[in-house]
Computed example of a mutant assay.
Amino acid sequence: LYYLFSNLISDSRQQLIINQGKLHQQSKINESIQMYKSFGDEEKVSYPYEKEKELITKVKTKNVPEAKGILNDLLGYVLFSGGNSMDILKSRAIELCSLLSRAAIEGGAATDSILKINNHFLQNLQNINNLDELCYKLQESVEVFTESMFNYIPSKNNELMKKAIAYISKNYSKNLTLEEVANDVHLNPAYFSTVFKQSCGSSFKEYLNMVRIEESKRLLANTDYSVIDIAIAVGFEDQSYFSKVFKKYTGLTPKQYR
């Protein structure tokens, strides 16, 4: 009996996981909608383009959980402002998919693979008539585009780059050098620099700065630390250089962002 019904059991379990994922996503989207509603009718809430930038950064740094959180916030705004219109949500979904496509290609993914993923999503989009299903498909696309930036790399380098990124995430606040990370993954620094850029779409220094700026944004938003203290905490030794890099990635100075 077990062998006869094992496939059915497996399918049911998988469907249960999917349903739980959909419920979790909808609860987060509803939280976002309630947040925008709390602003009141008198306050005009504009589309949060800065969150699109954050979404790209999270995808490029392979931070899927936070990317999903930002996506749900964006979807909450679209549903809030569009009155749950399927047509409006589909239009925004196409735009977001294009955005994710560009981010993945800039991140080093193979262009032909990304175009196939994009086309597949657009084809599926035509057959979706349920808001929850559409939101969930977009969430899946975040995972697919993020993974695509690493899957095309030869397997021997794939694991090494993941290890390098993990090392950077753990040590970004220190005076981290390319040579140190290359040594950790046992690669020649010059070769490591080439492979890293191929896999991440950014140079080692650009990627390190991106990670540091992401952490500084969290500190600026959630603490009262001074700008110089935050700069030092995330690995910058010079406040003016920190401010320059911060503005490059966000379009704002640290004080304006706060």
Rank of each mutant, 00 (worst) to 15 (best):
L160V: 09
N124K: 09
Q34Y: 05
Y241N: 13
G251V: 03
N30M: 10
G21R: 13
S240W: 05
I128H: 01
G235I: 01
N119W: 02
K156H: 14
P65W: 09
N222F: 04
I94K: 15
I17C: 10
N175W: 01
G40K: 08
V144S: 01
V227Q: 03
L160R: 14
N222I: 00
L178W: 01
Q34T: 08
D184H: 11
N63D: 15
G107D: 00
I105M: 14
G107S: 01
L23Q: 15
S81E: 11
L208R: 02
D112P: 05
A182R: 09
F145C: 01
T57N: 07
I114C: 10
Y136D: 11
S10D: 13
N209A: 06
I94V: 15
I9K: 12
F204W: 06
M149K: 14
P48I: 04
G82Q: 11
V64N: 03
S32L: 05
K244M: 09
Y3G: 07
T57K: 10
G40Q: 08
N124F: 04
T57V: 04
L79V: 04
S203C: 05
Y136G: 08
S226G: 11
K28A: 11
K58E: 06
N158D: 03
K37P: 03
C97W: 00
S91R: 15
K22N: 09
N157W: 14
H120C: 04
L115V: 13
S27H: 14
V195M: 11
P189C: 08
A67T: 01
L122K: 12
S113I: 14
K90I: 07
I88H: 09
L219N: 02
A166T: 13
G201I: 02
E143W: 04
Y172G: 06
T61V: 05
E215Q: 10
M161G: 09
N183D: 13
S193G: 07
E180Q: 15
I70L: 08
V211W: 02
A67S: 11
Y152E: 12
C135V: 03
L131V: 10
K217T: 03
K205N: 04
S38F: 06
E215F: 02
N188C: 06
S203R: 06
R212I: 00
H120T: 12
K244F: 10
S46W: 00
Y2I: 08
N72V: 00
L187C: 09
N63P: 06
N222D: 03
N130S: 13
Y36P: 09
S91N: 15
N151Y: 09
N119S: 15
K37D: 08
V144N: 01
N30C: 08
Y207M: 06
A93G: 13
K137S: 12
F196H: 09
E159R: 14
